Simulated assay, not measured.
Amino acid sequence: MAEEIGTGGARRLVLLRHAKAERAGAVDDVLRPLRLDGRRQAGRVGVALRESDLVPDRVLCSSALRTRQTWDLLASHLGDVEPDVTITDTLYAADVADVLDLLGQTDARVRTLLVVGHEPTMAATATHLADPASDGGALAQVRVGVPTATYSVLESDAAWEDWGPRGALLTYVGRPTA
C-alpha cells in the first residue's frame, strides 16, 4: 500500500451490493455469474464512483463469483488506480458483526474503503452504522434493503476500528441508471 494514501479528514465507507446475477438453481449459489444487464450495471457503478470521487484505496470483496465479477467490471472504469484488494469468504455469508470486524482490520491510511457484498448484509450494515442525522431518504432506503448494484456511502472521522452503531453519517445511496 502506498504511503500517500489519505492524509486526514473523514473516512468513507462504500457498501455495494453486487450487480444483477443469474437466477439460482443451475449452479451452486457461490458460482452464480452476473447477467448481461448486471455486467452493464457494474460498469455504470464504476463510472459513478469515479465521477463522485469515491475511488477506493482498499477493496474487500466477497469470494462469490458475482461479487468478484462486479468488482472486476467496475474497476475497469476507475482510471489508473490499483487499490489493495482482498477477496474473502467471510463476506459471502457475513453478518453486520463480520463486516465490522473487517473494517476494524483496515489500515489507518485508507480513506475510502469499498466493500462488495450481498443483501441483506450491505443494507443492514449501513443501517447499523448510520447516525439518525443521516440523509433521510438514504436511511429509509437502507432500512428496507437495496436492489442490485446499489451502493451506500457513509462518512466518519473515527478510526476504522472505532466505527460502530450510529457512528457514521449516511450521505448517499446510489444506483446508477442507463
Rank of each mutant, 00 (worst) to 15 (best):
L16N: 00
T67D: 01
G79K: 08
Q105M: 15
L74F: 06
P83Q: 07
A97W: 03
R44N: 04
T88P: 05
A64D: 04
G167F: 09
L102D: 06
D98F: 00
H18Y: 03
Q69V: 02
Q69C: 03
A64K: 04
L154R: 01
R58P: 00
T177D: 10
R23A: 13
T127E: 13
D131H: 10
A21N: 00
E161S: 15
G46M: 02
L129I: 06
D107R: 15
T7Q: 15
A123G: 06
T7L: 15
W71A: 06
A19M: 02
D89M: 10
D107A: 13
S134D: 02
G9K: 09
L65F: 03
A97S: 13
G104K: 10
A75L: 10
G25H: 12
G38R: 04
G174A: 15
V55N: 06
T88A: 00
E119D: 07
E155W: 08
R32A: 03
A75H: 12
D95P: 09
K20A: 11
H77T: 11
R44V: 09
D107E: 12
L129A: 02
T121R: 01
R109Y: 08
V116K: 02
A108N: 12
T121N: 00
S62P: 03
R166K: 14
S52F: 07
A149I: 04
H128T: 14
Y172I: 15
G136C: 10
V96Q: 00
V153H: 04
T112F: 07
R32F: 02
R68S: 07
L129C: 04
A140P: 09
V81H: 10
I5R: 15
V30W: 01
A24T: 12
T150S: 11
Y92N: 08
R44Q: 10
V99H: 08
G79Y: 02
G46S: 03
A159Y: 12
V99S: 01
M122R: 05
Y151S: 08
I5D: 13
C61S: 14
A64Q: 04
D162C: 12
L100F: 04
V59S: 01
K20M: 05
